[in-house]
Design a protein around this nucleic acid. Structure first.
Lengths: 139, 139
DNA sequence: GTGCTTGCAAATCGTTTGCAATAGC
DNA sequence: GCTATTGCAAACGATTTGCAAGCAC
């Protein structure tokens, strides 16, 4: 994988210890974390890190197209450091969010006279593990 | 259009002045309003209405499948009283949210071993009016 | 009267803002 | 030294909660 330094640089984002840490976390943990989850995870290595900086940094990343905002969870904003178009699935039992390869391009409406430049495709239901668990007989 | 009374009844929701008003507003104003917008609009006719009731009511509608939650706007929850699957487009200039007929069924992922039971397709960009306005020469 | 519904006030909590301290060139 | 960045504390605002009063059958 491309270095985090280089990835930030390609998006016109000056590196800092905090920014590198947040982006590295996003790109190496495909869990679609909340700002708070990122904060909790990085605080161990960077004890001076503040939640404000995590929020500032995520906002900067999204503005520069280096990360995407995921609105699949009604409670919290979630973020993804992989910006190539793809769909997200959220399990209603375990809460896990999974990336799905869906060719979103080919489903854009044919007759629409505006200009579409962002697409979000969210799916909800039961993930494989949770549907399997539910199908087991009660002990 | 089907009566609001009947629509609520079909979803197992007991009618009340407040519930009828909220659902009638949702089904007759396809603006995908926020709880606050609904509250502000109905307060005129029902001066005793409280925002808590609007929230309670919307939550009940979503739980019973009589309305859907729309997470396209990062600031507020929005609601739609039309529950047949369709996509939503939000103009980044004027903020308007438009319904789009997109056959969501046809682009569900083929190989996915979980169970999908909710789909949300959100598009963002410039609506027809706003892209036209932007293309005009400055006066 | 019993259970459901409403609505007020207060609490909650994710996120933003103001601003002074700090770091990097 | 100057500008960008960080981080603390306070503010904000949408939504939720606790609970007492009101309504319906």
């Amino acid at each position: 994988m491309e270095s985090t330094h280089q990835y930030l640089s390609e998006h016109g984002i000056r590196p800092s210890v905090q920014r590198l840490a947040v982006m590295h976390y996003l790109r190496n943990n495909r869990t679609h974390p909340t700002a708070d989850e990122i904060f909790a995870a990085l605080r161990k290595r960077i004890p001076t890190l503040s939640k404000t900086t995590v929020y500032n940094t995520l906002k900067l990343f999204v503005a520069r197209g280096a990360a995407i905002y995921i609105g699949i969870d009604e409670k919290n904003a979630r973020f993804d450091g992989h910006v190539e178009p793809h769909a997200h699935f959220r399990c209603k039992k375990c809460g896990k969010i999974i990336d799905l390869d869906v060719d979103i391009e080919k489903f854009l409406p044919e007759r629409f006279n505006g200009k579409i430049d962002e697409t979000y495709f969210y799916l909800k239901g039961l993930c494989e593990e949770c549907s399997f668990t539910l199908s087991l007989p009660r002990l």
